[in-house]
Amino acid sequence: MNLRSIDLNLLVILDALLDEAHVSRAAERLGLTQPAVSAALQRCRGLFADELLERGRGTMRRTERAEALRAPLKTLLAGITRLVDPPPTPLADLCQTLRIVMADYPAVQLMPPLMEHLGRTAPGIDLVLQPWQGADAARAGLVAGTSDLALSVFPPAEDELQRRELLNERYVVAMRPDHPAARDFSLEAWLAHPHVLVSGRGDTRGPLDAVLAGHGLRRRIGVVVPTFQMVPDLLARSDLIAMLPSRCVPAAAGLATFAPPVPVPGFPMHVAWHRRRDGDAGLRYVARLLADILSKDDPDCLPQGSSLFDL
């Protein structure tokens, strides 16, 4: 293929089309007319010998070839941008929107100080907090380019993600102070009452259930909720019990907490982005702010005198 025959602007339009799976939305995003984007789609279909977007019932869906193109296309465009990138824009002059995936914990703790910092130092950076649907979905969003940053547990993997550890979290068992199990807390008392499970996907089993199964034990899940914020009030008004990350138990809730009666490993919290975004000053600044905010909450998570990010 003769590379001189390829219009790079066509690839920019294709990137928007594959993100939106909708001609009108892609046109609005790019500031182009709908006929121009439709014509570009037809040219892309010829270039890749594939329909790319197929019509369904009132919508369009990406073909298998289109799905396979999404991540490589974003990586290619990011590389071209870095190649011809102008001098860095001062933080105060940046204007961009970043999409961040995280659960309501730690969002409740992070978002107020994060917005306060951005308001003073980079007021043109806008944030979109995307709904939490699990670590696998967060990873997929970073690879596909539908998310820019994600806070979760990201084990090492060969998927071109950059990840940095923010803190290490431990679990506690929480219940109301006058709960029957609180009088003489034990494994038997813990398992004798229904539990709360937090799952953005509506799962009815979590990591604790695998730990219990390894001991030949099981628990009853009394209720599954999508957010951690719902849990304290549920515990205060019922005999429900929850095992939560320690930072999810607000002191003001007045709940009784105990160490889990079986060993349950804690977990690291990471912030992650795709390597193609390494040159994005706004993204890396927000990632650094998130790390700084959490390091103040957990001063042991960073060595003294060092920074989690070298920007």
Rank of each mutant, 00 (worst) to 15 (best):
Q42K: 13
D50L: 05
I125C: 10
T121Q: 14
M111F: 09
R65W: 00
R82I: 00
R99D: 03
R61D: 05
A71C: 07
A36L: 01
C44F: 09
R99P: 00
C95M: 05
T33D: 08
R99Q: 06
V108R: 15
L73H: 04
S24G: 07
R43N: 06
A66M: 00
E28G: 07
D126C: 15
R82H: 03
I125W: 10
I100P: 10
G79W: 10
L69G: 05
Y105I: 10
L114W: 03
Q109T: 10
P35F: 12
T97P: 03
L41M: 11
R70N: 02
G56V: 07
D85S: 15
R45I: 06
R62D: 05
S38D: 09
Q96K: 14
A78R: 02
L118V: 03
L73V: 03
P90T: 00
L53Q: 01
A107I: 01
A40S: 14
A26P: 03
V128K: 10
A107R: 15
A49W: 00
A40Q: 03
M60E: 07
P72M: 02
Y105T: 12
T63V: 06
G124A: 05
P123D: 08
R70F: 00
Q42P: 00
S24N: 10
V101M: 10
V101K: 08
V128E: 14
G46C: 02
C95E: 15
C44E: 09
T33F: 01
M102D: 05
L91N: 04
L118D: 03
E64T: 14
G58Y: 10
L32H: 10
S38W: 09
G56Q: 09
G119Q: 08
A66N: 00
E116W: 09
L53S: 01
L41W: 05
V108L: 14
Q42Y: 12
Y105N: 11
V23S: 08
M115S: 08
L83F: 14
R61K: 15
C95D: 13
G31A: 03
L94Y: 01
R61T: 15
V84N: 09
A26Q: 06
D126R: 15
M111S: 05
L69R: 06
M102Q: 13
E64A: 15
H117L: 15
A27N: 09
V84M: 10
I100Y: 06
